[in-house]
Computed example of a mutant assay.
Amino acid sequence: MTDHSKLNRRRFLQGSAVAAGGLLLPASVLAACGDGVPSYDEGSGTLLKLARPDKPITLSTVGDPIGNGLAHESGTLQILNWVDYLNPDVLARFEETYGVKTAVTTYDTEEIALNKLRSGAFQPDLIIGLTDSVLSRLVAAELLQPLNHSYLSNFSNVIEGLRDPFYDLGAQYTVPYIIYSTGIGYRSDMGVDTSYFESGNGWDILWDSAYSGRLGILDSYRDVIGSVLHRNGEDVNTGDKKVLDAVLEDLQEMSAATNPKIDILAYT
């Protein structure tokens, strides 16, 4: 029987299917992530190629993965994660059970995470939750180290379609963290007109002035833009300027009609 009472950093990373410097990445269902056209990244001064399902990309290789068969590391496991994603009690029990020290640095937006990484003052072992639209910027800025797949003992358990993802062909830098969708939640005791949801386009409720001051939307450009594109029957990965200009107008109309609260607390 294997003794799991002590777990050092490399064993943790192996079990999590990610190596030091890797990125745990959500594959969003509703995400306006570009249409394969170039995008300029001001932080690195690099012209980027944005990925989409029908236009996959192979990211440039920056540096080398860690070597094979290295001894297990000790020390503190440094984690960069969205705020409120990990219950402190869970981390405390994890540390007590496996004899590991952890330090979690949080971010509220992806731009904040990028700025923390670009400053050079913080070099995490594990990054959780950044999206594929940020990945090419991290690679261009040489902020990620390629993965050594010999340490990823659980990689075979990943959904087959995500073992060679369109945003990182060959899974050089990432393993998937979560697949999620974007939707609307409401309280059944607050007199919400559910006919919106029965009509087939529940997104329209966000523009109904009867709910002014009673609505909230997620502080995430991917989810918000993707939701409007979905409402309008457009490709959520479009790069068409006219279509995106129409999204801007729709969002301005939403703001005027319902003045929704904008925060990061709507994750469920």
Rank of each mutant, 00 (worst) to 15 (best):
K6R: 15
R11G: 06
A32N: 08
C33D: 15
G34F: 08
D35W: 04
P38V: 03
D41Y: 08
G45W: 04
A51M: 08
A51S: 15
R52L: 04
P53A: 10
P56I: 13
I57W: 05
T58F: 01
T58A: 09
L59Q: 09
L59I: 10
V62K: 05
D64W: 10
G67Q: 12
T76K: 12
L80G: 04
W82P: 06
V83W: 00
D89M: 03
F94R: 09
E95H: 05
G99A: 08
D108R: 15
T109D: 11
N115W: 03
K116H: 06
L117Q: 09
Q123I: 05
I127F: 02
G129L: 12
L130D: 13
T131P: 08
A141T: 13
A141S: 15
L143E: 12
D168E: 13
A171R: 06
A171D: 04
Y177S: 12
Y186M: 12
D193A: 05
T194P: 09
Y196F: 14
F197R: 13
E198F: 10
G200C: 08
G200T: 04
W203S: 07
Y211C: 05
G213F: 11
R214Q: 15
L218I: 07
S220N: 11
R222T: 05
S227Y: 01
L229R: 03
L229D: 02
R231C: 05
N237V: 01
T238H: 03
T238M: 01
L244T: 07
D245Y: 01
A246H: 00
V247T: 03
D250V: 00
D250A: 05
L251P: 00
M254I: 14
L265E: 14
